[in-house]
Simulated assay, not measured.
Amino acid sequence: MEQLFQKFLKKVGTVSTKVVRDFIYQIDWKDRMIGIRGARGVGKTTLLLQYIQQQLPLDNQTLYVSLDDIYFSNNTLVELADQFVKNGGKFLILDEVHRYATWSVELKNIYDDHPSLRVAFTGSSALHLHRAKADLSRRAVMYYMPGLSFREFLHLAPQYQLNFPSVSLPEIIDNHTELCLSLTQQFKPLPAFQQYLSLGYYPYFSENEDTYHLKLIEVLNLILEIDLPHVVNINFSSINQLRKLLQILAESTPFKPNIQKLSERIGSTRNTVISYLQYLENTEILSLLYSTTKGVSAMQKPEKVYLQNPNLFFALAPDNANKGSLRETFFLSQLRPKHAVQYPKQGDFLIDGKWTAEIGGASKSKRQIKGVEDGFITADDIEIGYQNKIPLWLFGFLY
């Protein structure tokens, strides 16, 4: 255990708290067991280490450990927790729990056996954490950490360093002209927005923008080659089919899937393609949009399929990214962390069962939402909107 403490103190000492995401303040850290899920690369590890630096004692009461550490080749998590508590431990911070086969059962035992111990843990996707629900029900309070919003990118990016408050969706809909007038006095949103679409969703853009998309491809490969096979039964041939599927989606217009044609193109069956789409959504590579008129069943075809965030287009299809897909993908990625989004009868998106959004360019007309109550146009390539035409970039201030 001494080596684990040494690794922890060395790692926590290298993390800067100059820029801390607002997400850290949305978590009630007083709960006995907290789980944080989110895609690979969104900054979960950094968040944990920043919390330790700011709030926890850096002595024998606190321990951070990643569960892919070689320590666990000869020791169990339960044994670590037991020894830690006996030596005065109070705060156990666990990273990458999905890399440890029996993590959910052992966390349940730790929760039940050590009522004085507070535990926080991270996992990389819903795919891993979904299977832990039964073990951790009524024990762990779960949080979802998305990638950076456009607002957070403006705060983190060295060339901007702008700290704006988030705004609610009703504020945007009702007061977008005033908001935009105020914001555009402080920065030029359109060029900054183009940067965000390409490389602003994952915080490691600040390390080296030139290699950002290469790192993103590496992350996708880790998900396909390590994360997925660890949880579901797929082989090398299936991984190649998943890659083909991603390439098709990255080069498509806003995609209404023909499952039969997709299955023929990648050499698979209809049900397998639907399973693939669901796997890729659970690992946060895709976002699936379902109809408002149907309940979601296991083998139901989604109405539309999107990459999870716009940066993925520039990694997978840098020369063929469809502008319409980029716009809709951005909008969906900024809305979903806080709102329910479905496929409507009219328009592109139905939000919280109330607002209908139609996405397009600066000249987008109101034809598709004519007669729709609470409908609005979300327009790209404009700085300031008018009436129910709202600039697309402004929805990047929701969180």
Rank of each mutant, 00 (worst) to 15 (best):
A140L: 00
A134D: 15
M145W: 10
F153A: 01
V141W: 08
L179A: 00
G147K: 03
L179C: 07
A140K: 02
N175Y: 12
H176D: 06
A140C: 10
L183I: 06
T177C: 06
F187G: 02
H176M: 06
Q186P: 03
P158W: 02
F187P: 11
L148W: 12
D135Y: 07
Y143H: 13
Y143I: 08
N175R: 10
S182I: 11
L162T: 06
F187E: 07
P146S: 08
L162P: 06
L169D: 02
S137R: 15
L136K: 01
L181E: 11
P165D: 14
D174G: 15
L154K: 00
R138Q: 14
Y144R: 03
Q159N: 12
A140T: 08
N163Q: 07
A140E: 04
L162G: 05
F187D: 07
N175K: 09
Y143G: 10
F164Y: 10
L169C: 10
F150V: 00
S182Y: 08
V141E: 04
P158I: 04
L179T: 02
R151N: 04
A134F: 13
K188Y: 12
F150C: 01
P170R: 04
L179W: 01
E152S: 12
T177Y: 11
I172E: 05
S182K: 14
E178H: 11
S166F: 12
S168I: 15
F153I: 00
Q186Y: 03
G147T: 09
L183Q: 01
Q185L: 05
Q161S: 07
L169A: 12
S137T: 11
R139T: 09
M142V: 05
L183C: 01
E178N: 15
P165G: 09
T184A: 01
V167H: 13
C180Q: 08
C180F: 05
I173D: 07
V141T: 05
M142Y: 00
Y144C: 00
S149G: 03
C180P: 04
S137M: 15
V167M: 06
P146W: 05
P158L: 11
Q159D: 13
A140P: 04
K188Q: 15
E171V: 15
I172P: 09
L181A: 15
F150L: 00
E152G: 08
Q186R: 11
P165Y: 05
H176G: 10
Q159G: 10
P158S: 04
K188I: 02
S168Q: 11
I173L: 14
Y144L: 11
P146H: 01
K188A: 13
P170T: 00
N175D: 05
